[in-house]
Amino acid sequence: MKRQEIVAFIKSERLIAIVRTKEQEKVPEIIEALVQGGIRVIEITSNTPGFLNEISKARERYATSKILIGAGTVTNKVIAEQTIKSGAQFLVTPNVNQKVLAIANQYDIPVAMGALTPTEICTAVDFGADIVKLFPAGNLGVKYFKSVKSPLDDVCIFAVGGIDFSNIEEWIAAGVSGFGLGSALTKAKYGEEVECVKINTERFVKIKKEAKWIH
């Protein structure tokens, strides 16, 4: 898929599932549970042990499926280049970093760039970010998002951090374009971890289909 096709796919899916774990051996089973639950866009964070190897393995495993595998917590250009060479189809950052975008542009890879303030959001857009990741969104809440979104209503904003099933519909109603969800999907609450991930992802997919999205 070309860059613009990847961006369009992520925007249509409205979710980037975040895989972050201290146990590398759990990565493949978490990803498989996400996929079985209906998730199609997945990031593996750079603070997950063996993340480069796991990105490569996931790309190979889902090469014939319409599943996007990207890299998260891409804080600098070194990580950006490493993950792209390992097969990452998109990058997600927690911060605004022009050098990350420069590397991504070199390889024609899209970036969801982390930003919080109006200045950071506009800077990310000016640098060429394909999606703005409002982070940490939950700490400031929906009211803050609505205040920021009002003058920047043409920016595609995904909310990340502090979003779960108790507030996700409120964010949708406020006009968010999508989400990055980690522990809301992967935290075990119903017994076995893999089954729990599948249950959580199916729950989100149901919410996504039934929601009245503004953007």
Rank of each mutant, 00 (worst) to 15 (best):
C156E: 15
I207R: 07
V148S: 08
F204P: 03
I30P: 13
A88W: 12
D126Q: 08
A71C: 12
K22G: 11
G180Y: 04
T123K: 10
T123I: 04
R59D: 02
T83G: 07
I121S: 10
S46D: 06
I69S: 00
K209I: 05
C156I: 14
E32L: 03
N200S: 13
T73F: 01
E195P: 11
S12E: 13
I207C: 09
Q82H: 08
F165K: 10
G38W: 08
G138W: 04
E81F: 02
S150F: 11
P94D: 05
V132W: 05
K133P: 14
M113H: 06
I121Y: 07
V100L: 00
S166G: 11
E81G: 01
K189W: 07
I31E: 12
F179R: 03
K212A: 14
A63Y: 00
E193P: 13
N139K: 15
E193F: 14
Q98L: 01
V155E: 01
E81W: 01
Q89G: 00
A104Q: 06
T64L: 00
P94F: 03
I157V: 14
K187V: 14
E29L: 12
D154R: 15
Q24C: 12
G138M: 03
S86Y: 00
N167R: 03
Y62A: 11
A17N: 00
M113V: 05
T21N: 07
K85I: 04
F145G: 06
I6N: 03
G178E: 05
F145Q: 07
P118Q: 09
E29V: 13
A174D: 00
F165N: 06
A174I: 01
T117G: 02
N97S: 03
G161L: 11
F135D: 02
